[in-house]
Structure formats: structure tokens, C-alpha cells
């Protein structure tokens, strides 16, 4: 081999980089982030139901919040009619956070897990917790 040392070194670096996620992942459990819905407002609900179905909220909540913001800020329309016909006030702080008052235990759980940094709290006042 010509320049064998350098080639082997390059290959070791390559394999090391490729194996890195596996090395970091080794021995770690596959813990699922468990957003808590254990808040007084949700406990008091008879039927625990968000604005839309859970599966929809999981994948579409960011789009819904964005649409709500556009509707409220640009058109001044605050009324949201859900698929089941229920009416809601389009408001992050007064509707969403009324039930999900536990930002650290709910929102942040998944957002931190997947590295998402939504900019809700650039404008809104983040709830004070632990009180």
C-alpha cells in the first residue's frame, strides 16, 4: 500500500464517525418523552378532549397555532369551530394554556426531545411554573 498509514487513518475516522450515533445510543434505553396532561383543568374535564383529536393535534398543532395567529393578528377573527362543532377562542394563552398549564411538563417534553424551538414565547409571556 502506498500512503497506507494515511488511508487507514482516514478509514478509521470514517468508520468512527459512522458508528458515532450507535456508540452514543448504546446502552441507552429508548425512553419516550411523556408529556404530562396532569393539570387541574384537564383533571376537571369530564371527557378529556383537546380542540381536535389527539392524533391530529400531534402532527398539526404547529400549523393550527400558526393559522390562529394569522387569523387573530391579521383578520381579528378569534372564533374557531372545531371538527366536532365545538367553538373555541383562538388564543394560545387563554385556550391552549388554560388546560395545558404545565409548559415544562407538556410542551417542552417533546420540543426538547426533537430539538424543536418554537418561537411562541418570543411574543407571548411564558407561564410561571412551580408556584
Amino acid at each position: 500500500m502506498y500512503n497506507g498509514g494515511k488511508i487507514i487513518l482516514g478509514l478509521i475516522v470514517f468508520i468512527g464517525l459512522m458508528a458515532a450515533p450507535f456508540i452514543f445510543g448504546l446502552g441507552k434505553g429508548n425512553a419516550k418523552p411523556n408529556p404530562s396532561i396532569d393539570t387541574p383543568a384537564i383533571k376537571a374535564m369530564e371527557k378529556k378532549q383537546c380542540v381536535e383529536a389527539k392524533a391530529v393535534m400531534k402532527t398539526e398543532h404547529m400549523k393550527m397555532l400558526n393559522d390562529w395567529r394569522d387569523s387573530v393578528v391579521r383578520d381579528g377573527k378569534r372564533l374557531y369551530v372545531a371538527t366536532d362543532g365545538k367553538k373555541y377562542d383562538m388564543s394560545l394563552q387563554n385556550t391552549c394554556m388554560k388546560c395545558h398549564s404545565n409548559k415544562a411538563q407538556f410542551c417542552d417534553k417533546c420540543h426538547i426531545y426533537v430539538g424543536a424551538k418554537p418561537y411562541c414565547w418570543d411574543c407571548h409571556i411564558a407561564p410561571k411554573e412551580g408556584a
Binding site: P21, F22, F24, G25, L26, G27, K28, G29, N30, K32, P33, A55, K58, T59, E60, K63, C110, Y113, V114, A116
Partner: peptide
């Protein structure tokens, strides 16, 4: 066609942790 990203990450973490 959004997927549940948390669930997707779990599948991937499952792969890299050999579970």
C-alpha cells in the same frame, strides 16, 4: 403530510440503540 416527529425520532433512536 406531517408525521408525528416524536414517534419518528423514537424509531430512529430505537435503531441506533439496537432496540
Amino acid at each position: 403530510i406531517r408525521v408525528d416527529i416524536t414517534g419518528a425520532k423514537q424509531v430512529i433512536i430505537g435503531l441506533v440503540s439496537f432496540q
